[in-house]
Design a protein around this nucleic acid. Structure first.
Length: 273
DNA sequence: AAGAGTAGCAACCGCATCTTT
DNA sequence: TAAAGATGCGGTTGCTACTCT
């Protein structure tokens, strides 16, 4: 549905922000918090549109913005995450604390794209045959955990059922719109399985949460159906249960885990970037 | 010294999605 | 349930500083 652009007024400032405008915006947000961007400029006394204020805050004024050059480790991670996620700058930025999606997008467009161009595309291939199912699943768990922030982690209710948000496993849940009766796939068939159905099943508590991380791994491998990888669930459950005994690792550690994980997977998840 | 070309980055814009009424 | 409003995202633009000739 269409709507008028929010910045159509003639009497608003455009272009670079002045130090005074920054000061006013920072002071207002400090007192009133983020949000309500559309009404913020008027209340704060700024001749800017709400979108401009939001962008300025998120990309520049936020106190947790990390200044300085992108480190080699960050660059490496950006490349790998971009290979996994594509131009999902906000998702990539979410894995780089203190960095904004705009900054990463700019960095990619100016520096990294050329670097990566001409090199091999991400290979979507099967795990090597010398991998035991147990090892494959252990890696899958590590990978899936990375995409589940501590805040999003599985929350169990009193009955032991699991509430799971689609965002918990990246964006894979949105790869297919919900168009089926929820929870009908407590067992999977190659013809019927979809990521959405699987997640709906999880949401309804019809599928064990222990299975969830496996699905992200399967997505990364380009699998059309979870069933193809779903033959050794007992092994997988056991490994996941063991790992679940420990608390979620530090966020930075998770990032390094992904990097190490992908480093180990030369030729599998597209290690030759 | 000056003009052209280029790189880097902040900011804008349009659209999609989510939320509210 | 539909419409309107609010927010978020990704592509693009345009300004500035720097380098080259």
């Amino acid at each position: 549905m269409g709507r008028k652009p929010c910045c159509s007024r003639e009497d608003i400032n455009r272009g670079a922000w002045t130090a005074e405008e920054d000061r006013i915006l920072k002071a207002y947000i400090k007192n009133h918090g983020e949000g309500r961007w559309r009404s913020l400029p008027k209340k704060a006394g700024l001749k800017r549109c709400g979108k401009s204020c939001r962008l300025r805050w998120l990309n520049y004024l936020r106190p947790d913005i990390k200044r300085g050059n992108i480190t080699h480790e960050e660059e490496d991670l950006i490349i790998r995450l971009h290979n996994l996620l594509g131009n999902k700058w906000s998702l990539i930025a979410g894995r780089l604390p203190g960095r904004t999606d705009n900054e990463i997008k700019n960095y990619w467009n100016t520096c990294l794209r050329k670097k990566v161009q001409g090199q091999h595309q991400l290979k979507r291939c099967q795990p090597p045959t010398n991998e035991t199912p147990l090892l494959v699943r252990t890696k899958a768990i590590r990978c899936a955990k990375l995409f589940i922030t501590p805040q999003q982690h599985i929350a169990q209710n009193q009955e032991g059922n699991v509430a799971i948000e689609p965002a918990m496993i990246g964006e894979m849940a949105t790869s297919k719109a919900p168009n089926s009766e929820s929870g009908k796939h407590s067992s999977f068939t190659p013809e019927e399985d979809t990521w959405w159905d699987v997640l709906v099943g999880l949401d309804k508590g019809n599928v064990s949460p222990l299975e969830a991380p496996d699905f992200d791994f399967m997505r990364l491998c380009g699998s059309e159906s979870p069933s193809n990888y779903y033959t050794r669930r007992e092994d997988f459950k056991r490994v996941f249960e063991e790992m679940s005994d420990t608390t979620l690792p530090d966020f930075e550690l998770e990032l390094k885990s992904l990097a190490n994980f992908l480093d180990c997977e030369e030729g599998w998840l597209g290690g030759d970037l």
